[in-house]
Design a binder for these strands. Structure first.
Lengths: 350, 350
DNA sequence: CTGAAAGCGCTAACAA
DNA sequence: TTGTTAGCGCTTTCAG
């Protein structure tokens, strides 16, 4: 058990008969090295099993990386707000201050605002871009431009599979929907089900896959079950309350409710005013307001993944890959879906 | 927004009018500094808001820390085996190779073997000790000795609250039991319940708290419910099968089973041979064999926390604190309890 | 008790 | 295209 001290760039240089700088150049393919010497260096690296010491690299490097985050606008405590926090936490966790994060937001109801945000991102000449998928066609145009400019990008939450992104962190929305349906109906006497949706101005529909998964579970396990949809406005609690009350007057037999988006907390006023021990509600995502609703017993289960951690992960993995100058070990990071109920809420945190 | 470059040890030294080495001495209270200069240095540190750059520290430091892990013996894939993997992963993740881990195991049925293991640990003169709680009285003696020798220690999984440990990572076993009872009985027509236990040679009972939590839930929510206990041998699958078959012949009405330890997989042969759609089984801990049982539909829910990650966390937090030479930011790290069912198993991993 | 200085392994700017 | 070298911020040894 000799000194298990790792080979250094110096050892490689000596073995290859070149200077340390040259080794560095080939390790990070910075170019400007003849194929012949590069080969010698690569041989030496292989022979010694060398891999760069990231601690030393970070200390020596003064380079700064800026990651542009292109995500939807959100009010405080909303899903994308929490995600944003995760981004910044990752940047702050980098004690060497070599990575920073910039935010570019758009209105999910306005393609024009998305275009504008993309333009902004491009202008800021970032080292990389982290984004979500909303307007897929436009996004393809955007990534084409990024590719042309040599700017790598990563996806959070949703992705477009056939694009050459660097990393992805997220949970499969279809599976989440499927699980949600299970939690809502399993072991239950189930009549019909109410699917509560958000009234939107645009036809964008970010939660389609969750809904599909949900419906698929029902088709598989409760073929006779009927689903009624009801739309509520996100910005007007009173109106939402009225609509839900109205809906329940018309469908007094419906005891099972779900929402596919992250805002099941919008149902809270209604649920609070009309308690019903037979009712079950299942929602998604770990917003504080949703957790509160579970704690209060208004929502039975939440299907979640750690959204801040998910966001944290993309930027740290992405940054790592930028700094290391190479693709990450693993490209897709599927987050585990958590089942959150009143009894396992206590120690749920980032 | 000038250069937000952090103050360095050099800045502090200059402001305090001392040498860098001296600053280092007071930062890590290495001693050998007059109170007067130490005061000046502390003032300078406060004024500049200085905090050491861990990247540089790690690079410069040649010191090695060895963490002795004192845990029960375990066969491959058993709970403590998985935990052990987490320990080693944490040591490996330390690219600077400054921390290493050593293993000291004992037989949970033998106080003498525990004493022997403690002796071993002491002889190895480790920088710190990570351990679990089995023989509490003996453990108190051991920690007293550690204290005397100035060796800090951390707890994993279980702890003794009133001891001056450095860190703890674990989940509250009582809460886990409470949650398990909920998952087993909620929304169900519940008759009596079978509590399957491991036959042990010694009176040690590591899962008492889980059982207490479980029982408490029943008392709170199903006061009429009766619980029958059945003991199976851990090392003899055939006998276990017979015992369970026998038990079920005598109690055909019992449809709800649970085990408080990590080895619900011991029931698999029985469950496989006697399928019953009305039966529910709830177990604990994320052993591969348990996950397989869930995947196969034999066990409905598992209450888990990420055991490898939990182990990984103690070691890295503990190591961090050893290296930094000070108590960690947070001492108790309660892990979130996961609810694992067939539908959210897919992306469950470290 | 305190200061000075030689690294840790790598990066990046400059020279050759 | 390649070599050289001055740091990055901290630790640690050796003098004083």
């Amino acid at each position: 058990m000799g000194d298990k001290t790792n080979p250094t760039i110096f050892d490689v240089a000596r073995l290859a008969g070149v200077a340390r700088g040259t080794v560095d150049r080939v390790v990070y393919n910075r170019g400007g090295v003849s194929e012949k010497t590069a080969g010698k260096v690569r041989d030496a690296i292989a022979k010694l099993g060398y891999s760069a010491n990231p601690v030393a690299a970070r200390l020596a490097s003064k380079k700064r990386y800026t990651i542009a985050c292109l995500i939807p606008e959100a009010g405080p405590g909303d899903y994308w707000d929490v995600v944003k926090d995760g981004f910044f936490q990752a940047a702050e966790a980098d004690r060497s201050h070599s990575v920073s994060v910039s935010l570019h937001r758009f209105d999910t109801d306005s393609l024009e605002s998305y275009r504008e945000a993309c333009r902004e991102v491009l202008e800021s000449r970032p080292s990389g871009v982290v984004m979500n998928v909303v307007f897929e066609d436009e996004l393809r145009l955007f990534t084409a431009e990024l590719l042309k400019q040599g700017i790598p990008y990563a996806f959070v939450d949703r992705k477009v599979d056939d694009l050459p992104y660097t990393v992805y962190c997220g949970a499969d929305p279809w599976d989440a929907g499927y699980l949600g349906a299970y939690l809502l109906t399993h072991r239950q006497q189930v009549g019909d089900i109410a699917f509560v949706r958000i009234r939107r101005k645009s036809p964008a529909d970010p939660n389609k896959l969750r809904r599909d998964g949900f419906m698929r579970y029902l088709r598989d396990h409760l073929p006779g079950c009927r689903v009624s949809t009801v739309f509520i406005p996100p910005e007007n609690p009173d109106e939402a309350l009225n609509i839900l009350e109205d809906f329940c007057r018309k469908h007094p037999e419906i005891k099972h409710f779900t929402m596919a988006n992250s805002r099941v907390h919008l149902m809270v006023p209604f649920l609070r005013m009309h308690p019903d021990p037979e009712r079950s509600v299942v929602g998604y995502d770990d917003l504080q307001r949703n957790l509160d609703a579970v704690r209060e017993g208004l929502v039975e289960y939440l299907v979640t993944r750690r959204s801040p951690m998910q966001a944290y992960n993309v930027v740290s993995l992405f940054a790592e890959s930028l700094i290391a100058g190479k693709a990450p070990q693993r490209r897709d990071h599927y987050m585990h879906m958590d089942i959150l109920g009143r009894l396992n809420l206590k120690d749920y945190e980032l």
